[in-house]
Each structure stands twice: as structure tokens, then as C-alpha cells.
Design a protein around this nucleic acid. Structure first.
Lengths: 201, 201
DNA sequence: CCGGGCATTGGACGTTTGTCCAAGTTGATC
DNA sequence: GATCAACTTGGACAAACGTCCAATGCCCGG
């Protein structure tokens, strides 16, 4: 009978949920499978969360709050190319590599996001779902332009949303056709489209 | 006891499935709800399809084969603007309008596509899932360039994939943040990116 | 007009689902 | 060391699930 603080138990359950969804899809994310993955008894779930739907919502928030941001931050690592286009192309290509390496991971993100977005279809004005993503990507774009000695001709926040949208599109399209080369081409196309919106600083 | 040819019954069940998913999500697409929507007895489903999963797969194919193509074709209707950028911007904006008008519809498409793509994650090379979409959009792009007296500097087939990817991204991102103005801005950004790849013919 | 095969259907089957609860255990506080 | 709230847990519950089948109805080729 492991005694675990409530908050920590919630964290563990959310992590287990993400693992299950990556493996079995959101349709396979049942209460029993989640607690088995977390190595907990069934009752533990309803002690930590009101119901399964609440757990899924918490998992969706965790994805946009943490998991996804970590991946996005990783896109900028490494290369210190002086050319802005090269920088952006490299970042985009890195995302495609990440997608190919763990397709179930990205698929899980999308499944969770769509699932939670359905609940609020005819509902309140969206909360800050993708907000954190936009800000992380905006910081990356600003930093890239800086490193290359260029300046954006549009607000980075706006460009960040375009970029996030682009990454989502690359993901769904690749999941549909599994065409690696085409995904890279699409990634490069968007990278070039972005650099068209800069001027030498 | 309505006597219906097997093929027609399959069509009706697929249509009912899409209606149910648009309303209740893919999680709500159960055998009983689908046959109720189709006004059929429960047994009819397993006479027309091997199992529910097969019906969902058939529905996913129907979407990419018919439903979605009709929508895409509609993007070119109406405006006979001589300027290519205007044409593309108009088409993109029309898609955003369509998305706002029937969000559950586009959401259903994505849910079905992700669901069926999971089944083939570690599976055979993708079949022609998005293929039909690419060709329809490629035809639209060719026609638009023609009307505007311009020529693409890249194969239209490649640009068509970029466009489909873009539309998917616009959809998921809007579903996440419900930001109408931002969705339009993203749409216009991509329209401009496309026109950058033309030269006067 | 009648027989044989296809189509139809309601009900039943065993599983799995989410949720709940009462009994038991732990660890900090007085 | 007694007390009490917080935590844990296994089992029970009804409801919904996918699948199957025997019985019935219909239509058409002969």
C-alpha cells in the first residue's frame, strides 16, 4: 500500500494515460488499462480524479503545457547556422525526424487535442490551449532571426501561430500518407515561406 | 421490412456513421447509435459489414473519396478574380468559413482519419488515402494559375500536398484556439507563400 | 404457383465499461 | 499511546458494448 501525495498520484496517472494512448489510442485509454499501466488499483483513479473524462482533460492540458513544449524547444538545439533559412529548415526537418521516430507520440497528442476540443465545440471562448506553444515558438523565431541578423516584418506571435499550424498539418498529412520525402518537402516549403517575411536588420 | 440492395445499405450505414461522428465524436460512434441513426435494426450492421471497425474504415475511405473532395472542389467556385493571389486567398478564406460553419464536420474527418491511421502505424506502405485529395487540389491550382495567366515553378502535385497539409493545420489549430481572425491570417499567409512560387507564363 | 435462397430482424450472449462504497491501513497530532 | 483525518483498495453494481443466431419474410426463376 504505497502512500503517495495526491498531487504526485495525479501526475503519475497522467503520465500513464499518455503512455496508454500512445500505445493503444484514445479509444484504448480505459480506466482499467490506465491504472494497470500506473501499477495502481482501480479505485485509485476515482480518488485522484472525479472521473475518467477529467483525467483525459488533465492529460490534454499536460501535453500542451509540458510535453509538447519540450519537443518544440528541442527544435532549436544544436546547429548554429548563420543563415536564417538554414536554421528554419533544420528545425522543420528535425520535427519530421521526430515524427517518423515516434509517430504514436504525435498521434496521441492530436487524438487528445481533438477529443478535448470536441467537448468545447459550442462552448466558451477557447482557453489558452495552444497559447503556451505559440509563445515558445515565438521565442524560437525571435532567437533565430537574432542569430541570423535579420528582423521579422510581422509580429512573431502571429508567425508563431502559422508555424504551429504548419507543424500540425505536416503531422496529419504524414500520418495519412507516410510519405517521408514529401513531408520534408512540405517542411522546407514552409520554412522558405517564413524567411520571406524578414528583412536584414 | 425494407428490402435494400446490399451496396445501398452499406452506403446508408456509412452516411449514418458520419452523421453520428459529427454529432457525438468517434467515441460515440457505437453500433447501436449508428443503426438508430440509419433507422435500421441492430442486426443489419453485421449483415452489411463484418464488424464495426470495418464500417469505420469504410467511412474513412468514403470521406477521402467523396465528402472531402466535394468540399475542396467548392473552394474554387464563384470568384473569377484575375489575380492569382486573390484567387488563392479567396479559396483559403472560404475554407475557414466552412470550418467555422460546421466545425463538427471537419472534426469528424480528422477523428476518422487519425483513427484509421493508427491501425496502420507500423503497417504496410500507405495506400492512396489522401491521393484523391492531392489530385483534386492539384487540378484547382493548375486551373487558378491558368485563369491568372501564371505558371507554377514547382510541380502542382507537390504544391497540392503542401496545400492539403496547410488546410489540415488550419483546422486543428482553429479547433484548439477558436481564433477566427488568426485562422484567416494563417490562411492568407499560406496563400501568399504559394503565389511566391509562380512566374508570369 | 411454388420452392429455394437471400435478406431481415429481435433477442440473447458473454465482456467490458465507468462508478461507487465500505472496510481497512497509515501517519501525524495531541 | 490514543485519535482522527487522509489515504488505499478489492469487490460489487448496472449499463452499454460487439457479436452472433435462429426464426421469419420476401422475391424471383422455374
Amino acid at each position: 500500500m504505497a502512500r503517495i501525495p495526491l498531487e504526485e498520484r495525479r501526475r503519475l496517472l497522467i503520465a500513464a494515460t499518455l503512455t496508454v494512448i500512445e500505445r493503444d489510442g484514445i479509444a484504448g485509454a480505459t480506466a482499467r488499462r490506465i491504472v494497470q499501466q500506473a501499477d495502481m488499483p482501480l479505485g485509485a483513479l476515482h480518488y485522484a480524479f472525479e472521473n475518467v473524462e477529467d483525467l483525459l482533460a488533465a492529460a490534454a492540458d499536460a501535453v500542451t503545457d509540458n510535453e509538447r513544449l519540450a519537443a518544440e524547444r528541442g527544435l532549436a538545439e544544436g546547429g548554429a547556422a548563420p543563415d536564417l533559412t538554414d536554421l528554419l529548415v533544420a528545425g522543420m526537418e528535425r520535427y519530421v525526424d521526430l515524427l517518423k521516430a515516434r509517430p504514436g507520440h504525435e498521434l496521441a497528442f492530436l487524438e487528445l487535442m481533438l477529443h478535448s476540443s470536441r467537448a468545447r465545440l459550442d462552448a466558451p471562448p477557447a482557453p489558452g490551449r495552444y497559447e503556451a506553444s505559440y509563445e515558445v515558438v515565438a521565442a524560437l523565431l525571435a532567437q533565430a532571426a537574432d542569430a541570423a541578423g535579420a528582423a521579422w516584418t510581422r509580429p512573431v506571435r502571429e508567425l508563431a501561430r502559422h508555424t504551429v499550424s504548419t507543424l500540425d498539418g505536416i503531422t496529419t498529412t504524414w500520418l495519412a500518407d507516410h510519405d517521408d520525402a514529401a513531408a520534408l518537402a512540405t517542411a522546407r516549403f514552409h520554412a522558405h515561406a517564413l524567411t520571406a517575411l524578414t528583412t536584414p536588420a
